[in-house]
Simulated assay, not measured.
Amino acid sequence: MKKITLLLALALASVSALAQDSGKIGPRSSSDYAGGSGGHDSRNTGFGVKGGFNLSDVYGDNKKNYTDGSNYKAFHAGVYGQYGFSDKFSVQPELLYSRQGFQGTSTYTNGSTTTTVKERRLDYVQVPVLLVFNVLDNVSLHVGPQVALLTKVTEDGKERKIANEGNIYGYSYNSLDYGVAAGVEGRVGPARIGARYTAGFADVINNQVTVTGGKALDNIRNSLFQLYVGIGFAR
């Protein structure tokens, strides 16, 4: 958790530096450009903070081998920076702490040890880099790649090792996730509200050993829906 706090603090300091030489802080219209030339004077350039609700699950060929599955509800929070190239396009990198996971019962056997797990919590540090397209003056579409680092795993309320070493259940979690994110955002003054879906491409579980009933459980990937609000400041 200390590493996550340090990363968020460094990111906030870096995006805050964008505004230090600014003569105007606050919301702007998409058409508010110096000389109409666009560039970094756009209201699409700036920084902000954001956070909201996570609704997560998994998808993949082996999801059917988990029983009593349901969505996992949690939260995310972080910072973002934005650089505008024109009145329509900008790029937006973000640094987010995202608590997600999935619910589904599975039983692992490793030698004489049999363990049933019903709920898994996965804590990630996410770095999406999004292309932003302004559909309307205050409505935009976001799409781009995302990478995420798994920092903590909890199974049924008990913290487990991410790597296989020392894990008596004989399987590990993938410490790196990557995928694609897409969403839509609206702005009212400096406030933002948006929705986003992220599909992970990396398997959540690796090196799965014998499972009761011979059902494989390792071919599953993250599926995440986010609702968020934020405050943005133009440079």
Rank of each mutant, 00 (worst) to 15 (best):
G214S: 07
G111N: 06
M1H: 14
G230A: 08
A182R: 12
D61C: 02
L176K: 11
V127H: 05
A11L: 02
S86E: 02
D57I: 00
G48S: 06
N44S: 09
N174Y: 03
V91C: 10
S37W: 07
A34P: 04
V15E: 07
T115K: 10
H76M: 04
A9M: 10
V139N: 12
E94L: 03
Y173E: 03
G213K: 05
R221M: 12
A17M: 12
T113L: 15
T115F: 00
S42H: 06
S172L: 05
L12C: 13
K88M: 04
D61P: 06
K50F: 02
S56M: 04
V58W: 00
A182L: 12
N62V: 08
S56I: 04
V229S: 10
G104C: 09
T105K: 13
R43F: 15
K118G: 01
L176E: 13
N138L: 01
V139Y: 11
G194V: 10
K88H: 12
L8Y: 02
V180N: 04
V143M: 13
S31D: 14
L96H: 07
R99L: 08
V229K: 03
K3T: 11
A148P: 01
N110H: 09
T109Q: 11
A234G: 13
R120T: 14
G51A: 09
T67C: 04
T109W: 00
L149Q: 06
T154E: 15
P93W: 06
Y124C: 07
G52E: 01
N71C: 03
A17Y: 14
N174E: 08
L176Y: 14
A195M: 13
V49H: 03
V135T: 14
Y178D: 06
D218Y: 07
Q208H: 12
F233K: 08
E155D: 12
Q20V: 11
T113E: 05
V117D: 00
I25N: 09
R160L: 12
R160F: 10
G81L: 00
R120V: 13
G232P: 00
K161E: 11
Y83C: 01
V117C: 00
A9S: 14
S86N: 08
L131T: 08
N65Q: 03
F225G: 03
G183T: 13
A17L: 12
G157F: 05
F133N: 01
N134T: 04
S106I: 09
P27E: 04
D123W: 05
T116H: 00
G51H: 08
A216C: 09
T109K: 14
I205V: 15
V139W: 15
V229Q: 03
I4V: 14
S37N: 13
F85H: 04
V135W: 05
V129G: 02
D218T: 09
S175Y: 12
G232I: 03
I162C: 07
T109N: 06
F85P: 01
K3A: 15
V135M: 14
N62T: 11
F225D: 01
S86Q: 02
R192D: 07
S42D: 06
G48K: 02
